[in-house]
Design a protein around this nucleic acid. Structure first.
Lengths: 228, 228
DNA sequence: GTCTATATCGAGATAGAC
DNA sequence: GTCTATCTCGATATAGAC
């Protein structure tokens, strides 16, 4: 097992910036990053070997260890980057919603800030579709590092929880947390596998082409559930 | 890769019966079955080796292959058994609800039939708690066999879908399927990992000791979402 | 920085004694 | 039926040439 620098997963700072070519990094590194994300998202972490990744990327076998240190570290780096991106988008939308509503955004706007970024990523017309699948998979199949990061870092969710609590002073806060929990489950259900199964079950009566329509559906369901 | 008998996963018949000792099967087989289920549920399929299983069971290394054929086949057998158990309980409850309501059970009773069996299993006072974790994990981390079975066999869900559709003749059926999809996501969210994370986030304001209370919460949320 | 060749290990599966 | 000893393979990681 390779040691990793003792850096805490921070959700706000992002040394790698927006661009996919942070500094003057080797192009190889990006090729590996993208190939790995794609293969992990499609087939699961444990079912993809370093050989698969380097073959898909068209680079040599040693690249993964040279650029990332180990297979596990590569996985963690992808996870960190995508998590930061997603949470930054969510935080920005929540911030805007707060500003628009003099500090007390209504439930539906809070949920919109939570749902919209992952739903945008899910759009079949979007490259990031694969990144969202990666994140959802990493959540259940990830390494010990990832599980630790997920378990300990909940600061981004805290802001959403607080906003929701403020809308329902009548409810015990525990109850609000449980409802947030159900709402998050709705997002995690957007895996390829579950979506495919849904389409089989409904015999084609469900289609996920229209992301706006899906967002609307999710908002309707979650808002009604939360406001119950 | 070992070949498996071309048996289709049927959700109604159950050659192994209720008991944990089907016939006069070797006690070893049951020890392996239980140890494997437990370790898979706790650590994930790919992170548990045949050696781990046999060590935990206190039997020799060759038992897995002798009794089950292969590691993959063992996993599939556990999956099949638990899936049948769970779906039989659900089917029975739906049947009873249908009888009680002259063929047209209301939404809340349909959802109760869907939620109650897994929630009962989730009870910390219950041994089956581990079986439920196994099933949830198998859903995302399972082998190709399991994915195929999940993807093709949706007959048990079909009955729930039909019952829900009957309660809402006003809605396009596609819409009903989507809402059922969200509801299923709520169930899958009951993984140890997600529950632990929730308890961290809420700083102890959520507790899962009271299964009845959780069932009530889930029903309230899902019913409101579905009826929206 | 990049690649080839290889070291090293741990996995699942199996042969054959008891 | 059960166990020990072993086969075989595929994995990650690395050494060292270019």
């Amino acid at each position: 097992m390779t040691e990793r620098k003792g850096c805490v997963l921070s959700l706000t700072d992002d040394p790698g910036a927006e661009s996919d070519t942070p500094e003057a990094e080797a192009a190889t590194k990006q090729l590996v990053f993208n190939a790995a994300e794609r293969l992990f998202a499609l087939h699961g972490f444990q079912n993809v070997s370093v050989r698969d990744i380097t073959a898909e990327a068209g680079v040599n076998l040693a690249s993964v260890n040279y650029h990332f240190g180990s297979k596990d570290a590569l996985l963690f780096e992808i996870f960190k980057r995508r998590t930061q991106q997603l949470n930054r988008e969510r935080a920005r939308m929540l911030h805007e919603a707060t500003d628009r509503n003099s500090g007390k955004p209504p439930v539906r706007e809070i949920l919109t800030a939570l749902f919209t970024p992952p739903l945008r990523w899910l759009d079949p017309a979007n490259d990031q579709r694969i990144s969202l699948q990666f994140l959802i998979r990493a959540r259940s199949e990830g390494t010990a590092d990832i599980r630790a990061a997920l378990g300990s870092d909940v600061s981004h969710l805290k802001r959403f929880a607080d906003a929701l609590i403020a809308t329902r002073p009548d409810l015990p806060v525990g109850e609000v947390y449980w409802r947030l929990h159900f709402i998050l489950g709705m997002i995690h259900q957007n895996r390829f596998m579950e979506l495919d199964r849904l389409h089989v079950l409904s015999e084609g009566q469900t289609r996920e082409g229209e992301i706006d329509a899906l967002l609307e559906r999710m908002l309707n369901f979650a808002e009604a559930g939360f406001t119950a």
